[in-house]
Each structure stands twice: as structure tokens, then as C-alpha cells.
Design a protein around this nucleic acid. Sequence first.
DNA 1: ATGCCGGGTCCTACCCGA
Length: 266
Amino acid sequence: MLRAEPPDASMKIATWNVNSIRQREGHVARWLERRQPDLLFLQEIKCEAPAFPALAFQGLGYQAAIVGQKSYNGVAVLGRIPFEVVHRALPGLPADDTQARYIEVQAGGLTAIGIYLPNGNSRGEEGFAYKLAWMDRLAERIEALLAADTPLIVTGDFNVAPTDEDYAKGALSPSDALVRSETRARFRRMLWAGMTDAIRALTPEGPVYTFWDYQAAAWERNSGLRIDHALLSADVAERLVSAEPDKMEREVQQPSDHVPVMVEIA
DNA sequence: ATGCCGGGTCCTACCCGA
């Protein structure tokens, strides 16, 4: 007689904005071998699916699902556990929106969403309005899943520094789309809906950056931002063991400007 | 106030990032 599947003993879920997967294939492969995540969400792969080096990752035991786009954006997930893709675009966006920024999967008893949230600094107020609308749709998606008691993690490049502790002095203008009050209000809406900011749950104070600009010696001056996040539903947050950026990846040759962030769930 | 660097692409100046 088969017993019901017990919850997975432990899961490691990571996110990484790689700033071109073709430039960072080796970095990702080495990181998979070193850190062994169960799921790794990627952002800014900057290519369509046929150009994604899926075979290289398959050789390391990881299957890929790709939501590609030429030149800009593009997200993917690599998994060493079985997963099923359930959405390849954020529900509620206009049908003619072709920007590749969202992937939703079911894996290990969870719903896991990887996002590349619009930056909002390009194309003036129109670009900022696009960011805010995207955040409204994301909050609605989260609220719908929570209303159905779905164990949930939403992770990725949010392009939001939630508080003034989340960016180095001088790293951003107060009018930047990453810190504007309208942006932060929408991030808070996701927290108020019931999501836990995993990094801040374990490190309530002080700088915990995930991004350092290539320019102006930002890494050397530790002029960073905390904009890559993992938000957890309450039942998942109860199982939270660790949530940290891997700063070693900013030291390597030709790094991404973002480092990976990994969450471990008991 | 702008560029700094580093991706991308109609391959070469320009767009985008945060």
C-alpha cells in the first residue's frame, strides 16, 4: 500500500539575474555544481529558447524551461527535481504584451514563480506606468494563489529596493523607479497579502545587497542594492532555514552585476 | 547634470540596464 507522499525533506530554491546566459553559461554551470540548488530561476537570459545552452545544464542533471526573447529580458528555470510549467506569462497582462518576464512552475509540493520585474526607468512615465501595472498584476496573482492556500515562493529580480536600508547612500536617486513611493507601496501590498521577505526574515537589519553596478567601482565601494528577493507564503516561511546572496559570484572574472540569492526550506 | 561599464543588435552607433 502506497503512503501519501511526505513533504520534501529540504528544498533549495535560487534566483539569479545573469545578464545574458550566453555570456554566463560557465558561471551558471560552476555555480550549480558548487551549490546544488533544486531549482534555479534565471533572469535576463537575453536570448530566445534555441540559443539557450540547455544541453550543458542537462549534462549536470538539470532540466530547463525557457521563456525567451531576443535581445532583452528572458527568464528560465533549471531544475534537478521534477517540475511542471503552469504559466509562461503573468496572468492578467494584455495579450499583446510579449515581454518575457514570468515563469510559474509546480515542484516539490510548491508553486514557484520566477520574475524579472520591469525596471521602470526607461521611456519616461510610460515606462514607469508599465512597471506599476505589472506589479499590480503580480499582487493580484499572489493574492489569488494565497486565497487558494497555495504554498508559494515568488523569487527573482524585483527591481525594487524596499526600504532606504536596501541601497547604499548615493547608489540611487530618490526619484529612481526602484525606490519611488508608488513602487514601494506595491511591494508592501505583496507583504501585506501575507508574503514574507525571506532575506529580511533572517537578517532584519543592515545592508544585504544583491546587485552592484559595473560602473563607478560600485563593487569595490560596496555601493550596492538589494533588489533580488524571495517572498514566501506563511506555511513556506515557517520552514525557512536560510536566505542569502552569494557574494562570491561578484568576485569572479566577467561577473553578472547581480549575484545569486538562494533560499533553503526545511 | 552626465558618464562611468557591459550586455544586446539591422555591425556600428544606439538602446537598455539599475
